[in-house]
Nucleic acid binder design. Sequence first.
DNA 1: GTGACAAATAAGTCTGACTTTTGTAGGCGT
DNA 2: ACGCCTACAAAAGTCAGACTTATTTGTCAC
Lengths: 233, 233
Amino acid sequence: MSTAGRGLHGRVLDTLGPEITAGEYPPGSVLRTDELAQRFDVSRSVMREAVRVLESMHLVESRRRVGVTVRPRSEWNVYDPQVIRWRLAGTDRPQQLRSLTVLRSAVEPVAAGLAAKYATAEQCAELTECALGMVANSRGHRLEEYLVHDVAFHRVILDASGNEMFARLGDVVAEVLAGRTHHDVMFDDPDPAAVTLHVQVAEAVRAGDAVRAEELTRQITVGALQELDVLAP
Amino acid sequence: MSTAGRGLHGRVLDTLGPEITAGEYPPGSVLRTDELAQRFDVSRSVMREAVRVLESMHLVESRRRVGVTVRPRSEWNVYDPQVIRWRLAGTDRPQQLRSLTVLRSAVEPVAAGLAAKYATAEQCAELTECALGMVANSRGHRLEEYLVHDVAFHRVILDASGNEMFARLGDVVAEVLAGRTHHDVMFDDPDPAAVTLHVQVAEAVRAGDAVRAEELTRQITVGALQELDVLAP
DNA sequence: GTGACAAATAAGTCTGACTTTTGTAGGCGT
DNA sequence: ACGCCTACAAAAGTCAGACTTATTTGTCAC
C-alpha cells in the first residue's frame, strides 16, 4: 500500500522518515550521514540518496561542516503524500487528520461545484453508482463495502472538477476516510443523513446545479468536521 | 529566490526539472543515468541523487534494466513548491496559474473565516497595516510596493487560520501574485474594488465576523478568476 | 575587543569494481 | 504456430576508498 521501499534507500526512508515526522528529533537536531549509514548498515552513497529525498521534502537541510539538521515543522512539505502517510502513521496523526479535514472542507465543495459544470456523462453515471453503493451498504455493519464506495465517490468528484490539483487530493481523502473507518471510532453504521447528502450531490451534479452541489457538499464536510470535534475536542 | 542549486545535483535539477515539467520528454520516455551523467558532466553518484529527488516528486520512476521513465503529468506531486516553480517558469505556466487560482478560490475564503476566529491581536494589527499599505500604493504606478503589501496580507490570513496546510500555501500565493504583476498583463493601477475588499476583510477579521470575512474573501478570489478568464479564455 | 590566519570537520565529489534484477531473444519440444 | 524454458545482456543498484571543498571554530597577534 505504501511506497514500499524499492531499493535500500527506500527502506532507510521507511524508518527514518516516520521518526522525523513523529518529532523524535526536535527541530535543529543534527544528524551525521556517516553515523546514519552505520546505523542502517548501508553505504554512504545510499544514505546520501535518502538524505536528498528528505531534503527535497524540506524535512532536513544538509550543510557542510555542520551535518543534516532537522527543519521545523512549519517548513515541511506537508502536501507530500509520503509525508502525509508518515504523519498519519505516527504521533502527529490527530493534528494531521484535523488539517486534512479542514482542507477537505475548503476544497471539496468548490470541486463539487466545478464537477456540476464539467462532469462528463460517464462521470455522472459513475457518481450515481457510487451513491447507490453507499446506500446499499449503509446498514448491517458493511463498513468496508461502504468505505469503498465512499472513497470512489469523492475521487470522482475531485477528478470531475477538471482541476489537476484537486484531483491529486483523491489519495489523501481516501486515507482520511479509511482512517476514520479503521483507526478511529466509527459508529456501527454510517450517519444516514450523510448518505442522503451524497445521493443528493450526485443528483445535483447530474443536473448541472453547481450552487446546490457546492452547498450540499459543504454540509458533508461540516459533518466531517463536527465528527472530528466530538472525537478530539 | 529559487532553491538555488546548492551542490552539483541541485544544478542538474535546475535544468532537468524544468525540462521534464515542460513536457520535453513525453510520458513514458526513458532516460539513462549514465547518459544524463555524461550530458551534465557529473559523476553517476551525483546523477543518482538528482534522479532520487525527481523520483520523490513522482516526476520519474527508476526501474532496473529499463531506465528512468518519465511519469504522466497526472501522477506528479503538483503541490511540491519546486514543481510549481518549474511549471510556472515553463510552458505549463498558464495551466499552472489557473490551477493555483482555482485552489486559492477554494482555500482562501475558508482560511479567512478561520482567521476571523483565531487571529491574534498582533495578526489583526498586521492585517490592517497591510491593507493600509495597499491603499497607500493603489494609485500612481506603485505596483511593486502594492505587491509587497498584497502578498503580506494574504500570508497573514493563511497563517492566522491556524491550519498548517493553509499556511504552507503562502509561498504559492506569493508567486501567483508576483506573476500577475510581473509577467502577465497588469493594469497601471490595481482594481479599486479589490483594494476596498481587502480593507473590509481586515475589518471583518478584526471584528471576529467569520461569515463576512469568508464572503468578502470569496469576492476577492472570484475577481482573480475573472481576471484570469479575461487573459486566457 | 577585533581582525586575520590556521586547523579541524563533515559534507561533497569522483572513480572503479562488483551485484542484482529483469526484459528479451533464442532454442526446444509439442 | 504456439507456448515454455533457459541464457544472455543491459541497466540500475550497491559498495569502498580516496580525495576536494566549504565552513566553523579556535588561536594568536595587534
